[in-house]
Write a protein that binds this DNA or RNA. Structure first.
Length: 740
DNA sequence: AACCATCGACTTTTT
DNA sequence: GTCGATGGTT
């Protein structure tokens, strides 16, 4: 797709060559601000890259007066690579990075002004959760009532919106007062420890700019052009941050597709791209609607589907390419039948000369992969499941990382707690409790507290502590004289992690040991790359290690999807930005896709539809849609109607393979009012195991009476009035209700 | 302190 | 069904 070659002499003709008219307009737009609505497969990255080249060439810009922001490291790396191809070495000094990477860089530069220690640490969500758990325990809250995950979500949601504890109204629903207290303590904890979570990177820099207009002005003057990729995914704080950065002289270019906005649930605001023209009156909007990826049939289906959304800027994808095959729809008897169908058609594809890595199998939720994997294994087809646990999130890797963190900062309590008894060295819960108590009362870090306590200690725990201190100190002493890969090896060996792993039985042990080896090669790779970056460090671990830790914290470890000679399985969310000649979109069932938790509000439902749109537009040549009439879920069997999204695709584009089944068509609209729920329940009939007014038994809530119901299959819920607990909505798929 | 059994949860995910 | 957390037991 990309035929860019290094040009000996780059001129405008070369930059614009091979681009269609709207692409050229976007690349060379003179408007103060620019919004590019870039449909799927319309050459978005290409336009972004060529625009940067055009700007540098025509506006005589210094390369470092351009700032290009993306969401993922992968996108940033790709962009830098392609700019390098066009502009050569000039791309080196250009500010290209993720929101978090760039704010991290700014934060390092201005740590002092932000009241941060020079060696501030970045928390990943795992670290964050651990801290929150500790705080909840410290406050002596019941973890049942104040769930750590929800507290984390509470904190992150507010920070992503730019709200500190101090900004919050204290007039909140009672259940949130707990979260408020956790938030307050969490803020203090991070402040004290020099800990920075992901949201803090953005929020911290934003606040710095608010408090120090001089610093802000410096950045405003430095960047003549700011370009933002995937603008539809920006959240509130990212938007505020960008808004602040745009001074009177700044030009901003945003690129995105409101129809592919699928991250509303984690705070992304489609409004940002929708309202751009109002917010930036001197702006031009250009639509890229010519698609270079899919057949006409696929695009027609995608266009038809997305037209059911109201909240959109509007656009129609088209192609000069072939009409292509119709989409095929298969209604499986159950999820295994669906999987067999997928295997069958994959085989057919291979027989016709297709390749394994042409194939992408996409689904709404991870759990769906199991049945498909099973069938693929039986058929001996090579596949890989993308998503799930990231490399650096694996327990054994995090253990090693925690040791490395401790070497940089012994007062990193989170890291210490993680590894003080991993591998087991006799330091149990009681000892740990003692250490925590002492740390709390004497205002010490756990490291300090442990050292003080260990002096009077004899026995197993005491020996374990001494051994642990000796290990850390010995490794610390080596930092200035060994390389980072050597250090990593030492940690793996000397900590006893490797030896301990080897003694553990279980099939996963081998994979874990492999992971540790892979970590060493990742570290080696990091050190090699370091030489080519601007921040050249000495080869020794004392200099490299802090950089490495920051890098890893900001690295999702995105795996390269493209090359592997195998079938790719992934969720629709992870498939965004990818393309496959042959795509299976599985599990098109009401309740699963659209997901039952998105059925009740229009906004969520439209996001589901956009997700479906993303799925359809991944396909280049052939697209299969499928659903299962019955699907096993958490041990239960759910009966689902085919997804409404199927109906939203014109019949003329669909070849129906096996849909002569017993399942009735989808509900045309979500159930809204409670009275209609009530009616619905009465008429639900066979698949609804309870009648109105029936007495039922619940293992936890006891006896109750059915007073309402809604939905069917996986989304079926009943309302029950319990004697003790009052009225509750219970999902039939989860609740173990028995009729009395 | 380590191990085992039982219980419960269960959309999507980058930084 | 399966993973992870928890609580009770050894």
């Amino acid at each position: 797709m990309d035929t860019d070659l290094a040009q000996p002499r780059l001129d405008n003709a070369a930059i614009l060559a091979g681009l269609n008219a709207p692409q050229q307009q976007a690349v060379a737009a003179q408007a103060t601000h620019l919004r590019v609505i870039a449909g799927a497969g319309s050459g978005k990255t290409r336009v972004l890259v060529h625009r940067i080249a055009w700007l540098v060439l025509n506006k005589q810009l210094a390369a470092d007066s351009v700032l290009a922001v993306t969401f993922t490291n992968k996108a940033a790396a790709e962009m830098r690579k392609r700019i390098q191809t066009l502009l050569g070495a000039a791309a080196r000094t250009m500010w290209i990075g993720t929101f978090h990477g760039i704010t991290h860089r700014i934060m390092r530069e201005h740590a002092l002004a932000m009241g941060l220690p020079r060696n501030f640490q970045i928390l990943d969500s795992d670290d964050q959760l651990r801290i929150i758990k500790r705080i909840i325990r410290g406050l002596e809250f019941d973890e049942e009532q104040v769930e750590p995950k929800r507290a984390q979500h509470f904190i992150n949601r507010h920070k992503d919106e730019g709200r500190r504890y101090a900004h919050l109204s204290h007039d909140v629903p009672p259940e949130q007062t707990y979260f408020m207290q956790v938030y307050e303590r969490y803020e203090r904890h991070c402040q004290r420890g020099g800990l920075v979570d992901f949201a803090e990177l953005l929020l911290g820099v934003y606040e710095l700019w608010q408090q120090r207009p001089d610093i802000l002005q410096g950045f405003q003057q430095r960047f003549a052009h700011v370009l933002v990729d995937e603008f539809q995914d920006t959240n509130a704080i990212q938007y505020k941050w960008l808004r602040a950065l745009c001074g009177p002289q700044t030009h901003i270019t945003v690129v995105g597709d409101d129809d592919q906005s699928i991250y509303g649930w984690r705070g992304a605001k489609v409004e940002n791209i929708h309202g751009f023209a109002q917010e930036f009156p001197e702006s031009l909007t250009i639509r890229l609607e010519q698609n270079y990826r899919s057949t006409n049939a696929i695009l027609a289906a995608a266009n038809a589907l997305i037209q059911h959304n109201e909240a959109r800027l509007g656009k129609q994808l088209w192609t000069e390419g072939v009409k292509g095959e119709l989409l095929s729809l298969y209604g499986g008897f159950n999820e295994l039948d669906e999987a067999r169908f997928i295997v069958d058609r994959t085989r057919k594809w291979l027989q016709q000369g297709g390749a394994l890595n042409d194939v992408g199998i996409l689904y709404r939720s991870n759990a769906q992969s199991r049945a498909i994997e099973q069938s693929l294994r039986q058929a001996n087809l090579a596949y890989k499941v993308y998503g799930g646990l990231r490399f650096f999130d694996r327990a054994e890797i995090k253990d090693v990382m925690a040791y490395l963190k401790l070497l940089v900062n012994q007062h990193d309590d989170t890291a210490l707690e993680r590894v003080i008894n991993v591998p087991p060295r006799g330091i149990g819960e009681r000892t740990l409790l003692q250490i925590r108590e002492h740390a709390k009362s004497a205002q010490l870090s756990l490291w300090q507290a442990a050292q003080q306590i260990s002096t009077g200690m004899t026995g197993k725990a005491g020996r374990g502590l001494v051994q642990f201190f000796a290990l850390i100190e010995r490794l610390m002493a080596q930092l200035p004289s060994i390389t980072l890969p050597q250090l990593t090896q030492q940690v793996i060996q000397d900590s006893g992690l490797l030896a301990y792993l080897k003694t553990q039985p279980g099939e996963k042990t081998y994979a874990r040991i492999e992971n540790l080896n892979e970590l060493t090669s990742a570290v080696t790779q990091f050190v090699e790359n370091l030489g080519s970056l601007t921040e050249v460090s000495s080869q020794y671990a004392d200099k490299n290690l802090p950089h490495f830790l920051a890098e890893i914290a900001l690295d999702a470890g995105e795996r390269d999807v493209q090359d592997n000679q195998c079938i790719k399985l992934m969720t629709l969310h992870s498939a965004k930005g990818l393309e496959f000649p042959l795509v299976f979109l599985a599990g098109l069932e009401e309740g699963l896709f659209p997901h039952h938790r998105s059925l009740n509000t229009k906004e969520l439902l439209e996001e589901e539809r956009r997700l479906c749109y993303v799925g359809l537009t991944r396909a280049m040549r052939k697209l299969y849609l499928s659903y299962a009439e019955k699907r096993a879920f958490s041990g239960n069997v759910g009966i689902n109607r085919p997804s409404r999204f199927i109906e939203e695709i014109p019949n003329a584009l669909l070849e129906k393979l096996n849909t002569n089944n017993t399942v009735r068509p989808a509900l045309s609209a979500p159930v809204k009012s409670s009275s209609s729920m009530f009616k619905q329940a009465k008429h639900l009939g066979s698949e609804f195991p309870f009648k109105m007014g029936q007495t039922v038994m619940h293992p936890r809530f006891g006896e109750g009476v059915v007073i309402g119901g809604e939905g069917s299959g996986q989304m079926a819920r009943v309302q029950v009035r319990f004697a003790q607990t009052g009225e509750k909505w219970l999902a039939l798929a989860y609740a173990k209700l028995t009729a009395l």
